[in-house]
Design a binder for these strands. Structure first.
Length: 153
DNA sequence: GCCAACGTTGGC
DNA sequence: GCCAACGTTGGC
């Protein structure tokens, strides 16, 4: 089992939205490194759900991987903003995973707060200029963040 | 809205 | 294969 952090802009898709629909195909990832991380994901992997490009940014809660990597259909849809004319069905370029709601933290963990915690200083999300939307998280980091969030599982 | 940091593209 | 130009991300 592995742990991950996945970013989402709450104006587009928030943890509240995930709770409402329960399960969501995580489409639209168009970055090779993030795609490769999705291909490593296994059923039951745990996810920190991060709200980006909002005020305040931070970790809102957790989710679970309930579907492993498969081709993202939006890459073949000319109407989609995620359409990729250079991809083809014989050798799809982009994948998605299925993410299921797990919990909201009692305490939203703002980026400003996370930056004060030396236990988390190695997390990519805390480093300036990091734009990767999916990153691996160490187990100790995940457990510590769960404690900080006030475990509402 | 600004802009630094980063990934991608494409000319050479 | 290099790298400048460009587009995007995302904190502030």
């Amino acid at each position: 089992m592995q742990y991950w952090l996945m970013k989402s802009e709450p104006d587009v898709f928030s943890l509240d939205n995930l709770k409402q629909v329960n399960k969501e195909p995580w489409d639209g990832v168009r970055n090779y490194q993030a795609r490769n991380y999705m291909r490593e994901m296994q059923l039951g992997d745990l996810v920190l759900f991060y709200h980006s490009n909002c005020s305040p940014p931070g970790i809102a809660g957790t989710a679970t991987i309930v579907g492993t990597a498969r081709p993202d259909p939006t890459q073949f849809d000319p109407q989609s903003k995620y359409y990729d004319s250079k991809s083809n069905k014989e050798n799809p370029r982009w994948d998605l995973v299925d993410v299921e709601y797990r919990s909201h933290f009692q305490n939203f963990l703002s980026l400003a707060h996370l930056k004060t915690l030396p236990q988390l200083e190695n997390m990519p999300i805390l480093r300036k200029g990091n734009r990767l939307s999916i990153t691996p998280v160490r187990e100790q980091e995940y457990q510590f963040i769960l404690q900080q969030g006030g475990l509402s599982n």
